[in-house]
């Protein structure tokens, strides 16, 4: 294993941890404040709090991966490339970063789920991992394309992704959309597998885009 690869891998691993730390603190803070506004007298605040934290965590953490990955191709990776990193190491480095973020999300979700543990929670852990990977990869790929197009395209992509994400995550509340909408709870694993397929597909596209990428100033 080359020295440059090790330095690159270490850098991206730290980026993954940093990303998780900043985003999770933000998401949890918002979730706590949101829950506090909803609590009434006599409510079992601890159970409601943890359920809300889980809801926010499961929804926002993977989506945040998409938004922040939009920056990665042109900013973070551009800086790293300008400092002598190899493109193949950057590609693997981003896999490490996304994997670290996804695993941290899973661990975070598990920790939050402990006080309100139910049997079905494991499926949600899989969903969090898969969606984090898919979202991160999708954002990263579109980040490459934003370089070619403009901010308006990035905004549209982000909104469309958000709508699709809402559709998947909250499909159990959608009634009569012209096709059979499967309840999320019954098909979490299917969604997770679908997300992993998206992740794999995106990584193939990213590999091609990354191969001849250049530093943009």
């Amino acid at each position: 294993m080359s020295d440059l690869f090790k330095r690159t891998a270490k850098y991206y691993f730290r980026q993954g941890i940093k990303l998780f730390s900043y985003i999770s603190l933000g998401v949890l803070a918002v979730a706590v404040m949101w829950t506090a506004t909803l609590l009434g007298e006599g409510d079992d605040w601890s159970r409601r709090l943890f359920l809300m934290l889980l809801e926010f965590f499961e929804f926002f953490m993977p989506y945040a991966a998409f938004m922040l990955s939009l920056y990665a191709a042109t900013l973070n990776d551009g800086i790293v490339l300008s400092m002598g990193a190899r493109r193949k190491d950057i590609f693997i480095g981003n896999l490490i970063k996304q994997g670290t973020y996804a695993l941290c999300n899973a661990l975070g979700y598990l920790l939050l789920a402990l006080p309100v543990w139910e049997q079905g929670r494991i499926k949600h852990v899989l969903f969090v991992i898969a969606m984090s990977l898919a979202s991160g990869a999708s954002g990263y790929f579109f980040g490459y394309k934003v370089d070619k197009y403009n901010n308006a395209v990035a905004a549209v992509v982000a909104i469309v992704y958000m709508l699709l994400y809402v559709l998947i995550r909250y499909s159990f509340v959608i009634i009569d959309v012209g096709f059979s909408a499967y309840a999320f709870e019954n098909n979490v694993v299917i969604y997770a597998l679908g997300a992993l397929l998206i992740f794999a597909g995106m990584e193939v596209l990213i590999y091609r885009a990354n191969k001849y990428s250049s530093v943009v100033t």
Partner: peptide
């Protein structure tokens, strides 16, 4: 090699 180039204050996003 070190190629220290102009740093951009603005990114695409």
């Amino acid at each position: 090699i070190c190629y220290s180039r102009e740093i951009s204050q603005v990114t695409m996003l």
